[in-house]
Write a protein that binds this DNA or RNA. Structure first.
Lengths: 192, 192
DNA sequence: AATATAAGAGACCGAACGGTCTTTTTTAAG
DNA sequence: CTTAAAAAAGACCGTTCGGTCTCTTATATT
């Protein structure tokens, strides 16, 4: 990887944190300059526009997020452990070094409500992927006789994701993990 | 109510929709001028800063929201009907004429993450009030023998609000009410 | 109808925005 | 070591931002 590629990657890493913490509108080129130590010329040499930086940053966040989920679930032998690993990531989304600023998907979904139609599809895909992961955990649990075969995997997956996202927002707002704790506790009680 | 008061109220009404749909940062004075038909001088005669408009608009949204909830619940005789009325408001938050743009609380919670510390307390209070309303519905249901007396009102209220907020975001993003429908269905099944 | 005051218009301001362009410096291949 | 190309600097541009200030118009009280 030559200098140019390294710098471009570095800009994306730094920017993704900015976009996720203070949002698209508030992340100015000036902020990115400060965070990277580069000047305007250096940044616009690698990207044609702020939107292009935002897109690259969001993709990077998504990739990181997905990796984290899959890696956490892998090597777990029971559905219960998998679900625990999954929820643990949600718990850490507030303090995670890389993904600081909460769930990138939810943030993008709320802010890019009308504008940024560019990333709207990516956000949809991201959520769909998360639901799919939860669904696969539930279905795995059924084959292991951990989870009642009557539960509707898709529907329950939607409930789990929705409640986790809502609780994450509440916990971040109140700077109190109890909301996430409460929701996770009840989800477990519901499934196992 | 004299002209000045009418105009100020009108600015707040129009602005609250703007803030809730496109967010604080994206709602410029220019946008407010367009929405109200007033010029800069007319707007800043009634407010000292954009933040002051934002605060007034948010308070107005909160008040409207709370009114809607309480009014919907009143005159309902069973907890089941009350909960149904409550969830129905959530369903309509996407299409409501006044509160267009989703849940004002969630929008504010996500966007005013670091900045706008001004309204942070109001957002917290707003969420606490919603949880309290749900809690009271559940407790009413217990006295009516509709709901199992063993359920923890507070905890379940948090789960319900979290999942509704999450599902609302999903439904708005995908322009598909099914997420809210699914979650509401499961909440009902859980309680009744 | 007169008039004091409330309400609003709109030109103006400095700062910050995203983005361009020329110049300088750094990198890396021969 | 030389040199062409890649990378970065930073002055500059037009636009939009939130906000001010003066001047005009509308309101409401006597």
């Amino acid at each position: 990887m030559n200098k140019g590629e390294r710098t471009k990657k570095y800009i994306i890493e730094q920017s993704s944190t900015l976009f996720n913490t203070i949002g698209y509108k508030s992340t100015s080129i000036g902020e990115i300059m400060k965070a990277t130590g580069l000047k305007k010329g250096g940044i616009f040499y690698h990207f044609d526009s702020k939107d292009e930086i935002a897109e690259a940053s969001f993709s990077y966040s998504l990739m990181t997020l997905k990796e984290k989920y899959l890696q956490a679930i892998n090597s777990k032998e029971t559905a219960k452990e998998q679900l625990y690993a999954f929820t643990k990531i949600f718990m850490n989304l507030s303090s995670d070094d890389i993904l600081v600023g909460g769930c990138p998907l939810m943030n993008a979904a709320i802010e890019a409500d009308d504008s940024n139609i560019l990333i709207e599809d990516s956000v949809k895909e991201g959520f769909a992927a998360l639901i799919e992961i939860i669904k696969s955990i539930i279905e795995f649990g059924k084959t292991q006789n951990e989870i009642d075969k009557q539960v509707n995997s898709e529907e329950v997956a939607v409930l789990i994701l929705s409640s986790l996202e809502g609780a994450l927002a509440l916990s971040r707002l109140n700077k109190d993990k109890k909301y996430l704790d409460l929701v996770i506790k009840q989800i477990k009680a519901m499934l196992f």
